[in-house]
Design a protein around this nucleic acid. Structure first.
Lengths: 361, 361
DNA sequence: GTGAAAGCGCTAACAC
DNA sequence: GTGTTAGCGCTTTCAC
């Protein structure tokens, strides 16, 4: 067995660089920090830099953190890393953050509020400079936690109702409008909604947006078929879809609050021998990877999650580095991607939607 | 501008707990650390614990880290967080690690070797206790980096050729055997391989496994159609697939080195008006989410990436906590999931390349 | 079994 | 401009 030789720890300290450059440690610290460099004579700066490079000195962020209280560390809380929605958010955020010298601690915190709070507290103990939250419900203890301790934080993907923190979200209402406009244009009148959980802003706002969009076409939102899925999963989507179909056999189209729910709806259609889009048109939301390959290819509202992550990172950086930044809300536009899951309703559509379906665009 | 009121930092220190309990700070430290608790009189321990709980004391990991050199921090390097293969690995690993009190820093490091090394060095500066590497090529500088500084590290998903570090991988060879057995059993003889990049162990070993599997059925590996994709992407899969199809019109089935490549193959089939599985059977590898929903549903070799992550985490924890652990290799079994992309070859299969080549591009 | 003291590597008042 | 000094909050010898 190998010698239990301890991990070789980094050895070069400020002091050693100081000795090599013939100055005091504090001078080295000043010379190496861009913000304080101007306090030091240019000649000395040069000498110090050379010595540091020569010894391949690397500053110790832990020691610096202990001293300053800052850490160049940012925490990102997601409910589920493996969910294809959060991965690009993470990716976009960490791309930006690491370009700015921040490291990212990812916490896969699930949906349990206490656990979330716990992990957040852990990150704070680690002295993260700020938090990006992809987890919050419309009224979230985690948001309150950050507000209370005045910890820089920005919400991404989901917002909370009272806007105490900056957030980057997509335009849920607009997205639903795109979806409904598309279906109405195809000739649909009996349009149902497979809604997301109401405690998330996305579920809530998309449902409301759906109603508004219907009303804009003179359709009655109150009468529209709607079932709420218990979670944003294919399985729960299927469960809600069965209810929806049982209660409203006359529907010719549905708008799902996200792609996973739409795929759950696919499962139910298959299980009942129904054909999409012949018997029922379906619109999703998110444009996750691979939904262009399912059968039929899913018509959906595209959101750039990676861009959301990037913007959230930028907002957070500002919140960290500039004091007293005000709350800001960034709303990203979405757009409709028309594929094969939507078509004109079958001719045989009786009474209700008498209008002749137009040829799709 | 708002009052530049600083973030409320945690206030309760060891000293304060000590004062509250009427003992010295060092005693509190000993009482609170399970490893040293036995040095303190039980009564005192109780008193200290009570005081700590009462003040809701939280130890400062940064200070502890500075003092001890350890951090309860683990770095995970992935080439692409958004890739559906790595997300579950991450998820499984962080599940285990956080259960053991470790926090996870995820670095999305891309494929650039220098950048990888740089970020790894940054993590080491942050005093991570160990690294999980999902990035390595078969001969990787990153692996060398860890070995050199004797930094606990385990490889996941991909292994390096000289096994200097522990690794958790799936049984690539066995997986290919499952795929080939299945196709041969269906009656295929002219089976091609859409290979992954040879610098990754997966690409290399699956290709070799493919050859062995062929040989086991009396087929000549050297004569088998094979094209290597430049990367594990749908696009590169398509590129390689076009070459494969052009060069070997007589094939009746292909085994792809992973699902993304298989989906690229789907794209090419569609573009050429070919039908899967009627004209060509396709087998993937990984069983990514949603490949059961594409058309046709993909027959593939299932790997539990989440489990890989979990086991890598366990191995790493051992490497960190027990000195002189030897290199260990965990090979996870895979299994074939038969879906709709494989079927018996068409009866009419004529000699070599007699089949009418369809419109090539 | 407990207290005293030193110090991890750095930064920021404060001197000069 | 640069050196001196004093910690950040913790752990760990070393005394007793």
């Amino acid at each position: 067995m190998a010698q239990p030789q301890k991990t070789t720890r980094r050895a070069v300290t400020l002091k050693q660089v100081a000795a090599a450059a013939g100055v005091h440690a504090s001078t080295v610290s000043r010379a190496l920090n861009p913000a304080t460099r101007s306090m030091v004579a240019p000649a000395v700066v040069a000498r110090v830099m050379k010595a540091a490079a020569h010894l391949s000195y690397r500053p110790d962020p832990v020691a610096a953190s202990l001293r300053t209280g800052r850490s160049k560390l940012v925490g990102i809380l997601v409910p589920d890393i493996a969910n294809t929605v959060f991965a690009p958010i993470l990716s976009g955020a960490s791309e930006r953050l690491s370009a700015q010298g921040y490291s990212v601690i990812v916490a896969d915190v699930g949906n349990d509020g206490d656990r979330q709070l716990d992990l957040a507290a852990g990150l704070v103990a680690r002295r993260v400079d700020g938090l990006i939250l992809a987890t919050v419900s419309r009224d979230d203890p985690l948001a309150a936690f950050c507000v209370e301790r005045n910890l820089p934080a920005v919400l991404v993907n989901r917002a909370e109702t009272m806007a105490r923190l900056s957030a980057v979200v997509s335009d849920d209402s607009f997205g639903m409008q795109l979806a409904v406009d598309h279906l109405v244009e195809l000739g649909h009148r009996r349009i149902g909604h497979l809604a997301g959980p109401a405690q998330h802003s996305t579920g809530f706002l998309r449902r409301r947006g759906f109603g508004h969009a219907l009303a804009a076409h003179g359709l009655d939102p109150a009468a529209a078929p709607c079932e709420v899925a218990a979670a944003y999963t294919r399985e729960e989507g299927a469960v809600a879809m069965r209810r929806l179909l049982d209660a409203h056999p006359g529907m010719t189209a549905i708008v799902a609050a996200n792609d996973l729910l739409a795929l759950g709806a696919y499962d139910v259609l298959r299980e009942r021998g129904l054909d999409c889009p012949r018997d029922l048109s379906i619109v999703g939301h998110n444009d996750m990877p691979l939904v262009d390959m399912v059968q039929p290819p899913l018509t959906t509202v595209r959101i750039s999650h990676r861009e959301m992550g990037r913007q959230a990172a930028d907002l957070l950086q500002q919140a960290i580095e500039e004091e007293g930044i005000s709350v800001r809300n960034v709303v990203l536009p979405s757009r409709l991607i028309v594929r094969g899951s939507t078509a004109a309703p079958r001719k045989a559509a009786p009474a209700e939607g008498a209008k002749r379906p137009r040829k799709a665009r």
